[in-house]
Design a protein around this nucleic acid. Structure first.
Length: 289
DNA sequence: ATCGCGACCTGGTTGC
DNA sequence: TGCAACCAGGTCGCGA
């Protein structure tokens, strides 16, 4: 489940259920989801076997289980990944990719299910506290060590459009297409406004809105339009009912009533209110025309 | 150093 | 009914 609130829902679910558990068997049913593990599927399985899980941590959209030897099981859900807790013997999900058998008081399974396989798992050597594989990922805005001033400064130094910057995980992590659009709608800023054209106040407000919308979504169990995005128990969140911009093409803006517009952006879509979030002058015409 | 783009996957929906 | 085109919550690596 792609964005920060959905990943945090999963992390919290894991923290409730797998801390103290020991990995007793690992089955990799498809090699692709462990492609980033340098040891390959067999080495991945060997590195987990017998390890005890001591913590469930997250940065942005990455999450990891700290292991008793200082390594970590690092995961990313990509576009369609799920981490599900199941009873042994429960029938395999159609897109089950990796199965971990765990033992705590009783036995249960932690399953990585991923239709599109953009996500994946790997064992991070020495990564229990901070996996080196994600050293390039910035802190996320719900992390108390997130540096607001640094973010504002960096954004205002780049010409690049503000939505593109919100999606840049090396600047700020955890924000994806939905919450970027929602934060921009709340702030009344068009995503193509260059960072250099925004005031300190505007970027600070935008950051606050990003925090608020993601915190609110977290309180609802995350955003889910369908069964693809679920918590460790397979349940969906309810925040989709609270979205103001994302996915609302043609529907009236909740603030001014103008129809929400959808435009192509980075091989996907952006949703915005043309009145509350006026298009910047420079990008009203396609470049070159 | 920073950018914009295509690649990486599967499957559901839409339109001819 | 068939089939192609389009769409989907993300990230990485490449050439410019």
């Amino acid at each position: 489940m792609p964005e920060l609130p959905e990943v945090e829902v999963v992390r919290a679910g894991l923290a409730r259920h797998v801390l103290g558990a020991t990995v007793t068997a690992v089955e990799v049913l498809h090699p692709r989801p462990v492609r980033r593990d340098p040891r390959g599927p067999a080495g991945f399985a060997d590195a987990l076997d017998g390890r005890r899980i001591e913590a469930a941590r997250r940065r942005g959209k990455y999450l990891w289980l700290a292991l008793d030897n200082g390594d970590a099981l690092l995961g990313h859900l990509g576009m369609s990944g799920q981490l599900l807790l199941q009873h042994p013997g429960a029938s395999d999900e159609r897109h089950l990719r990796v199965r971990l058998l765990l033992r705590h008081q009783r036995q249960f399974e932690l399953r990585f299910v991923d239709q599109r396989m953009f996500g994946g798992l790997l064992v991070s050597a020495g990564g229990a506290v901070s996996p080196p594989e994600i050293a390039h990922i910035a802190r996320d805005p719900l992390d108390e060590e997130f540096d607001d001033d640094l973010f504002v400064h960096r954004v205002r130094r780049r010409v690049s459009g503000i939505k593109r910057q919100l999606l840049d995980q090396t600047l700020i992590s955890g924000v994806g297409n939905i919450y970027a659009d929602e934060a921009l709608w709340r702030a009344g800023i068009h995503g193509e406004r260059p960072g250099t054209r925004l005031t300190k106040r505007q970027v600070t407000d935008l950051l606050r809105h990003a925090r608020e919308v993601m915190t609110a979504a977290l309180g609802e169990g995350g955003t889910s339009f369908d069964a693809l995005y679920v918590n460790v128990n397979g349940e969906s969140g309810y925040f989709d009912r609270s979205l103001d911009a994302y996915g609302r093409e043609g529907l009236p803006c909740d603030r001014c009533g103008s129809p929400i517009r959808r435009v192509a952006f980075m091989n996907r879509s952006s949703y915005f209110c043309p009145r509350c979030q006026p298009v910047p002058r420079r990008s009203r015409r396609p470049i070159g025309s």
